[in-house]
Every structure is written in structure tokens, then in C-alpha cells.
Design a protein around this nucleic acid. Structure first.
Lengths: 106, 106
DNA sequence: TATATTTGCAACCGAATAGTTGCACTAAAT
DNA sequence: ATTTAGTGCAACTATTCGGTTGCAAATATA
């Protein structure tokens, strides 16, 4: 059973849940209301998210509030970093090309 | 058949391929040498990556060179943007907390 | 022309995935 | 004490996934 953050984020419902609980913690029932699926299915997604440390839970009586471990999302950001470097290089190349054109115009 | 960039990036082999052809185009055979899998499996991955516009191909005789459509990767970056905003808020809050502590020390 | 190389595609297979229903456990409300 | 509400977990199902093998098409080489 592969369980990493990229696989966690691959499912659209899970991405929805992640965004939903990014700013405020919510119970499974409350979360399920936002999606066209059963409470149990959401519960399953929450378990997967928990398994890769993407969410934390806080028990309050019989309710459990789930919220996002937002720092974990940085792992994706770290991976993207290498492409960001390439984007910047491309941008600088474009930038110097534009200034060359500009200089030649004068 | 769901086919979006998040699902494309979920598989570790595909992430490997993406990184591999980010800077230089390569043939399927050359790519397959870097992974512990058959050429056909790599070919399948390339098809999936093509289906979500992550790679482009250039035919040269009987060889086909694949390279990354690097701008497409920005779609992940765009989705991450919302979390980056939260990170920054948290950081600023921490920052102002630290200056408060510093001020109180004086 | 005959052969070797590079590739894509289809068929098949085992495992994983996302979903459902049903049930048990616990906490709150009556 | 009984009922209701909130939750997790197990069993089952249909579908998708990642991989393999085999084959056909096209290009290069002998």
C-alpha cells in the first residue's frame, strides 16, 4: 500500500477535503455534506490523509475535529522547487532576449 | 478514466520520468534504462503524460524524443498558491510574535 | 531485399482504489 | 435506562492501475 503525499493529493475528493479543512477544523459529518458521497467514504479519505500525516484530529466529546497539517504540504512545494528553477531560467532568458530586442530598436 | 496532472504525478515512476526529461528530451528506450521496468511500461506512462499534456514528442526517423511541457507543471504550483498564502500568514504571525517578545525583553 | 531496431498498441493479470452497506462502540440527550 | 447522534471499521464490489507478454508498423542497416 503506497501512501505518500502525492498519492493522497491525486484524488479530487481528497483535494477538496484538504482545502476545506485548511483554515478551520471540521467533523467528518460536516465535511461529508460538502461532497456527493457518504460519510463513510469521507471517513476513509480522512484515514488515508491521517496515514500520511496530512491531517490531525482533536476529539471533543463524541465529535472529532479534523484539520490540515499544513506544513506537510510543503513536501510538494519542495519537489516543485526544481521546476521553479527552470521556470526562472527560462524567464531570465526571455527577459534578456526582450532587452536585446529593445536595444536593437534604438 | 480520470486524467489530470495530480493523478499523473501520483506515480513515482512518472515523477522520475518527468524529472528526467525536464531538461533534455529522450527516447522511450533511453528513459526505460533509468528504471527497473520494461520499455512498454515506460511507453504507457508516456502515453498518460501525453494525455494530460505534460510531455511533447518530436519524431526523428524511427526515434521519438519526449520532453517535458514544463509550463504545465505550473498547474500544481497554482493549486499550492492557496497554501503558500497560509504559510506566509503563519510566518508573519510568528514574526510579529518574535518582535513582541524582543520588545518586552528590553 | 532481408534483417535488425525503435516504437505503439492490444490483451491479459494481480493489486490497489474509491465507493457502498452494515455493524459496533461511545457520548450526549430524553 | 433508553434512545439518538457521531464515528470508525470490516466486508464486499466495480473500476482503475501498473505491469507483463506478444505483435504489428515503420525506419534504418546489411
Amino acid at each position: 500500500m503506497r501512501r505518500d503525499i502525492f498519492q493522497a493529493v491525486a484524488d479530487p475528493t481528497r483535494r477538496g477535503i484538504i482545502v476545506l479543512i485548511a483554515l478551520q477544523s471540521m467533523t467528518p459529518n460536516a465535511i461529508a455534506e460538502h461532497f456527493d458521497t457518504t460519510r463513510q467514504a469521507v471517513s476513509k479519505h480522512l484515514r488515508i490523509l491521517t496515514e500520511c500525516d496530512l491531517v490531525k484530529q482533536e476529539q471533543k466529546g463524541r465529535e472529532i475535529y479534523y484539520s490540515l497539517e499544513i506544513d506537510k504540504m510543503k513536501e510538494i512545494d519542495v519537489w516543485l522547487e526544481q521546476f521553479r528553477k527552470i521556470w526562472e531560467t527560462r524567464f531570465n532568458q526571455l527577459d534578456s532576449l526582450l532587452s536585446t530586442i529593445k536595444k536593437n530598436k534604438k
